[in-house]
């Protein structure tokens, strides 16, 4: 076979530079200001996240490693049969998500992708969003990218969804009439009661919250904030959450992945 010409690859790479700039330029939080949520936590919580033998989230990662190898669904296949060694095939995947799914014509997040794989490839039932199996699998997949920088997908088809995410982020909600941006863009260095406000960075999800006594997803965290301003949370997996996650990912570009994080 003749070697394929290199030109298209070079052109694609050049084209993706403005796209990447567009992704990071379309957010309110400057690159140099970005701080992971763990930077706001107490030294004890930081130590718990940093030490794999003390980090409770590692239990879910280990469960996820087993589920990765477990055949499931009518196809009787395991994730591993298609994807092989997760340490290689899943490295760099989570920092890019949410990503566009051509079949759905809209973005999916990591848990959405896992459910599409279950339905399309394993022919198994989708997993419940906050169920222990979904949390374990997303934690396991995201863990393969720990330490890599968040690098949101530069696909131009994502732009309108990311813009909608930003609109939602900046929309005042609930009886208390507050937007996510009111706190997380404008007051991230302040304290709300006894708690640091932080920047709402998504780079350590799913993560273990001592308050939950469990691992939880980014969507669960967003539901908590919506309930806090006395707004009706979106249903799990609602398009609104995916759009918000897209915007959060663009806002987090460059921060290291820390899954599984630990929070108070």
């Amino acid at each position: 076979m003749r070697p394929r010409p290199r030109a298209p690859a070079v052109i694609a790479a050049l084209l993706s530079i403005p796209a990447l700039l567009a992704v990071s330029g379309a957010v309110a939080l400057e690159q140099g200001d970005r701080r992971s949520g763990i930077a706001f936590a107490s030294p004890q919580t930081q130590a718990m996240q940093a030490d794999d033998t003390a980090n409770p989230g590692m239990l879910w990662v280990m469960d996820g490693a087993q589920l990765w190898r477990r055949p499931d669904g009518a196809a009787g296949k395991a994730c591993q049969e298609c994807h092989g060694d997760a340490a290689q095939s899943m490295k760099g995947v989570a920092p890019r998500y949410p990503d566009f799914d051509a079949g759905l014509g809209r973005p999916v997040d990591l848990s959405g992708r896992i459910n599409l794989c279950r339905v399309r490839h394993q022919r198994a039932a989708p997993l419940a969003h906050e169920g222990s199996e979904m949390l374990a699998l997303t934690a396991f997949v995201a863990f393969q990218s720990r330490g890599l920088p968040m690098a949101p997908a530069a696909d131009a088809r994502l732009a309108p969804f990311r813009a909608e995410g930003r609109r939602l982020f900046e929309q005042r909600m609930g009886q208390l009439d507050l937007s996510c941006a009111n706190c997380h863009d404008d007051h991230w260095s302040a304290r709300l009661g006894g708690s640091p406000v932080t920047q709402a960075q998504p780079n350590a999800y799913p993560l273990y919250r001592l308050e939950w006594q469990a691992l939880g997803s980014l969507q669960r965290r967003m539901r908590n904030c919506m309930a806090g301003v006395r707004a009706e949370p979106f249903a799990y997996d609602a398009a609104d959450y995916i759009d918000l996650e897209l915007y959060l990912a663009a806002r987090a570009a460059g921060l290291p992945m820390e899954t599984p994080g630990v929070r108070p």
Binding site: R172, G174, Q175, L176, D177, L178, D186, R230, A231, E232
Partner: peptide, 24 residues
């Protein structure tokens, strides 16, 4: 202002059922 209007005016979008139509 980020201070909620406690007298009940100007709530935001999607006010949760339990609070709808009520002042804080």
């Amino acid at each position: 202002s980020i201070m909620p209007a406690y007298g009940g005016s100007s709530p935001g979008a999607r006010v949760a059922n339990a609070w709808r139509g009520k002042p804080i």
